[in-house]
Nucleic acid binder design. Structure first.
Lengths: 206, 206
DNA sequence: CTTCATGCTGTATAAAAATACAGAATCATA
DNA sequence: TATGATTCTGTATTTTTATACAGCATGAAG
C-alpha cells in the first residue's frame, strides 16, 4: 500500500468520517463542496489516486460507488492531532498522535478530528493544557461571535474565542495573562480550521 | 411504527441485507432487478411505503438516499447520571439522563458511569458546571491524595479533590469562593462513589 | 357490489452523478 | 533548468438515478 501525501490523507480521512456519520459514500460534487474545489475533476483525480494506491475501490458507473478497503468498524473513531507545524495541513500524517475510539456523532453536529491543546490561553473557559478538543471542520464556515474556534493566523494554529466587528476580527484568549490577537485581514492570512464542538480530558491530568 | 405486509417485510429485509453486505444502499433500478419488477416505480412506491410506515428515511434528490431507521451498528456506552438525591444510589433509574455512546476503555483504567457536574466548585481544575465526568467505581477503592473523587458526605454527592492526613479527611474545592469540607469520620458518613478518570464537554457550553 | 389499499406495468423526464478532455500552477528532484 | 508528480480549474457529455403520471389487477372490507 503506497504512502499518501498529506492532502490525500486529509481527503481519505474526510471520506471515512462521512461514511461513518452518514453511512453513505460521498459523490464527487459533495467532495468538491467539502474541500472548496471548483471542479468535480479535482475530486475525481483524488479518488483515482486513492484507488490506485489501494486505499479504496471505485465501482465505475455507479453513483457513490466508493468502497473503503479497510474495515470501518475497526477504524472507528477520530484522528488525534498534536502540534501542527506552521502552514501544514491539520491532518498530515506526521502530526497525528493516533486515533481515539470516540463517536463523531457524540458531539453534535459532529466532530471531524481531535486536537490536543497547548498552553493555558483558554484556561478560564475550562480548557487546559493537554486537553483534547473535538473540532468540526466545514468549508466556508462562518463563526458566530463568542464561539471558540481553531484558527490559523499566518500559518500558526491557535484556539481562541471568535469576535468580529464589521471587518475587524479579534481572537480572544480566556486568560488575563494573554493578549487578544487582532487580525488585520488585509495584511494577515486568516484561516478557520474548525469550530470547537467538544472537549475531552483523559486520565492523569485530573 | 405501522405493521408491514409480507411483501414489504421481504423488501425491507432485502434492503437490510444489501446494506450490510455492500455497505451501499440500493437504487430503484437495483431493487427492480432483484425483485424482477418491470418498472422502477414498483420500487419507488415500496420505498415510499416503508418510509411512511417509519422503517426507513428517504433523502430526496439524493442517489441511494436510503437510511434505515433501526440501528445497524448497536452502540453501547455508559449511563449518564444527573442530579442525585441525597442518600439514593447513583445508578438509580430516576437519576439517569440517558446513555452516551462513549467507549469505557477510552478512560484508562476504564469508566463505569458518567456524572453531570453541578456548580463551579472545581472551576480552577477546568471542571465547569454542566461538564460530564467519567467516573470509575471500585469497591474498597482508596484514593491517593490529590486525586479528584466523587464522594458522598452524609448522603450528599460532591466532586472534590481528596486529601487525607492520618485520620483527617478533607475534600478540597478548586475555587477560592468555596470552602473545603472537613470530614469527621467519627461523626460523618463518608462514602466514595468513585474516582474521576475523565471529562467530557459537549456542544453549546463551549 | 362498490371502495380502497396493495402491488404492480409502462412511459417519461428532470436531476444527480460519473467521467472525459484540455489545460495551468506549484514544487520537489534529477 | 528541465521533468514529472501533484493539485487543481473549467467545460462538456454521458450515464445513472430519482421521480412523476397514467393505468390495471387483485383481494379484503364495508
Amino acid at each position: 500500500m503506497d504512502k499518501l501525501t498529506p492532502r490525500q490523507a486529509e481527503i481519505l480521512a474526510w471520506i471515512r468520517t462521512r461514511m461513518l456519520e452518514d453511512n453513505l459514500p460521498p459523490t464527487r460534487a459533495e467532495l468538491m463542496k467539502a474541500f472548496d474545489f471548483r471542479s468535480p475533476n479535482a475530486a475525481e483525480t483524488h479518488l483515482r489516486m486513492l484507488a490506485r494506491k489501494g486505499y479504496l475501490e471505485l465501482q465505475n458507473g455507479t453513483a457513490r460507488g466508493i468502497r473503503l478497503h479497510e474495515d470501518l468498524s475497526e477504524t472507528m473513531g477520530l484522528p488525534l492531532v498534536g502540534r501542527v507545524a506552521a502552514g501544514q495541513p491539520m491532518l498530515a500524517e506526521e502530526f497525528r498522535e493516533g486515533q481515539l475510539p470516540v463517536d463523531p456523532k457524540l458531539f453534535s453536529p459532529g466532530a471531524d478530528y481531535l486536537l490536543r491543546v497547548q498552553g493555558m490561553s483558554m484556561r478560564d473557559a475550562g480548557i487546559l493544557d493537554g486537553d483534547i478538543l473535538a473540532v468540526r471542520h466545514e468549508a466556508g464556515f462562518a463563526p458566530q461571535n463568542g464561539q471558540i474556534v481553531v484558527a490559523r493566523v499566518n500559518g500558526e494554529v491557535t484556539v481562541k474565542r471568535w469576535q468580529r466587528k464589521q471587518s475587524k476580527v479579534s481572537l480572544l484568549p480566556e486568560n488575563p495573562d494573554f493578549s487578544p490577537i487582532d487580525v488585520d485581514l488585509s495584511r494577515d492570512d486568516l484561516q478557520i480550521e474548525g469550530q470547537v464542538v467538544g472537549l475531552l480530558r483523559i486520565g492523569n491530568r485530573l
